[in-house]
Amino acid sequence: MITCIIIEDELPAQNILKNFIRKVPNIELIATFQTAKEANIFLNETPVDFLFLDINLPDILGIDFIKTIQNPPQIIITTAYPTYAVDSFELETIVDYLVKPYSFDRFLKAIVKVEKNTQRTQYASNDTIFLNIDKTLHKLYLNDILYIESDRNYLTFITFQKKYVLIDTLKSWKTKLPSHFYQVHKSYLINLNHIERIIGNEVYLGDQNIPIGRTFKSDFIKKFNSKK
């Protein structure tokens, strides 16, 4: 379930959003606010996955309000003024910009962007990660992961037990995982703890052999030798 709040001072606009949200089963609206001040107090105490934010609020401009939020969630702008679109997309947390009146189909396109970003924002601890796949969180122990394979916009996590496929990029996971996960090829990130042998341009993890990319080999061998 993806959680959200609405920050919108006009009641008719609030009601439209609430009606649209009710039609999407995996979104939970947990609060609605008419002022940025009230919303900010709530956000400091309760994390949410994303929020709907009107540009023209009675106490502050929506764009300026975003800059005051500590650890801001994903944001979908809702406004009658398209002129702020360029400025808003300079802020990384803004995923879409809905100009009123917008249709339910246009609303759904914004939600899809949030869902994809939420999949990339995985929950991790020192020894486990959670993969968001088809609206279900799957817990994986890092030590069980042999390697991660990239195929266009999809990643496959290969463990001793099974495979997990999700929409994401190898680049994003390089920064999330600990240092014993190392890239040996443009399409592969491996767990160094499970290396059994290296032969030529292949590294063997259990009964799996992974190619070593030419541009990665020198740094990989240095990394491998430093772990001995």
Score class of each variant (00 low, 15 high):
L170P: 02
K37F: 14
G206A: 06
Q119N: 14
Q70C: 01
I111Y: 04
G206M: 07
L108M: 09
T3A: 09
T83I: 00
T46W: 03
G200P: 03
G200Y: 04
D151K: 01
E149P: 04
L91H: 12
K67E: 15
Y147P: 07
Y164L: 02
K116P: 01
K171T: 13
E90C: 01
I6V: 13
L17A: 07
T83V: 00
G62D: 10
W173P: 00
K171A: 12
I16K: 09
R152C: 09
K174N: 15
F50H: 05
I2C: 04
L131I: 06
P73M: 04
G206F: 02
F20A: 01
S88R: 03
K174I: 13
Q74R: 04
I27M: 02
I63Q: 09
H185I: 04
L205E: 07
K227G: 00
D105Q: 03
M1W: 10
N132E: 15
P101K: 04
L137S: 05
Q183I: 00
K116L: 13
K162Q: 14
G213N: 07
K23S: 11
I69Q: 11
T136M: 11
T128K: 15
L131Y: 02
L17F: 08
L189D: 07
D127M: 06
K113N: 06
I30W: 11
T35W: 14
Q70V: 04
D105R: 00
V95F: 11
L17N: 09
N191C: 01
I75D: 04
P58Y: 15
K176I: 11
I60H: 05
N56Q: 15
A124W: 11
N19K: 05
L155R: 04
I221E: 07
K67Y: 08
K67T: 13
K162Y: 10
N26M: 10
Y102H: 02
I129P: 05
V184I: 08
N225G: 00
I27Q: 03
K171M: 09
K186L: 08
L51V: 11
T3P: 05
V165F: 01
I41N: 09
S103M: 04
Y204C: 05
V112E: 13
F220H: 02
G206H: 05
Y204M: 09
I167Y: 14
Y102G: 00
H138T: 05
T32I: 14
K23H: 10
T136F: 08
V48Q: 12
E115V: 02
F107T: 06
P47E: 15
D134R: 10
T3C: 10
I21A: 01
H185S: 02
G213R: 03
I41A: 13
F224S: 09
D144E: 15
L170K: 06
T156I: 02
V99T: 11
G200K: 09
F42H: 12
P72F: 03
K113C: 01
N193C: 01
D134F: 11
A124N: 14
R214D: 12
P82D: 13
